[in-house]
Simulated assay, not measured.
Amino acid sequence: MNKDLRIILERISQSFTRRRDTQYYLQVVNDCYDCTYNFFINIRPRGERLHSIPLHTVEDYRLSYLEKIIDRIMEKYQLSITYDGFVGQKWPVKQELIQKRRHKDE
């Protein structure tokens, strides 16, 4: 986990510049075909288009591993996170639903 977490945190710090009137949030996508989790940072300046920057692909396809990574990211950055492809799944430790309903583009 150290390698994946280090890469994600490093790339977040490069993209998260804390500009005024700009929304930042993370997006985690469950790629069930390749059995990977993909991380993106989405940046939306006011009045401009959304920019989605790929951060990293986690190849360890276990929800418990992903939950630990998410918890460590949230310790350092208190960003909002959207989840895609996790409908009906629960976190192994917290036992909370990851994604309650599908998004329009899913």
Rank of each mutant, 00 (worst) to 15 (best):
H56C: 03
T22N: 06
L55E: 01
Y83M: 09
F86N: 00
Q89S: 05
I81G: 05
E96W: 06
M1T: 13
R101A: 11
W91G: 01
L66S: 02
I7H: 08
Q89V: 00
C35Q: 14
D84W: 04
S15R: 10
M74P: 04
F16K: 04
V87E: 05
I98E: 01
S15N: 13
L79R: 04
I69E: 01
N2F: 12
K100F: 14
T36R: 09
T36C: 10
G88N: 02
D4M: 07
R102G: 11
V28H: 00
Q89D: 05
Y33K: 14
T82D: 13
I98N: 00
D21Y: 10
E75T: 12
H103S: 14
F40G: 01
P92Y: 08
S13I: 14
Y33W: 10
E67N: 04
Y61D: 00
K68L: 12
H103G: 13
T22A: 08
Q27V: 09
I12W: 04
C32F: 15
W91K: 03
I7R: 10
V58Y: 02
C35F: 14
S52I: 04
V93Y: 15
S13Y: 11
N2I: 15
Y65K: 09
G47K: 05
P92F: 09
Y33Q: 15
L97H: 06
V28A: 01
Y33H: 14
R72I: 07
Y65L: 07
T22C: 09
I43W: 01
D34I: 10
N38D: 15
I81V: 11
K100C: 07
N2G: 13
Y83T: 06
S13C: 11
E106V: 13
L5D: 09
P92H: 11
E48A: 07
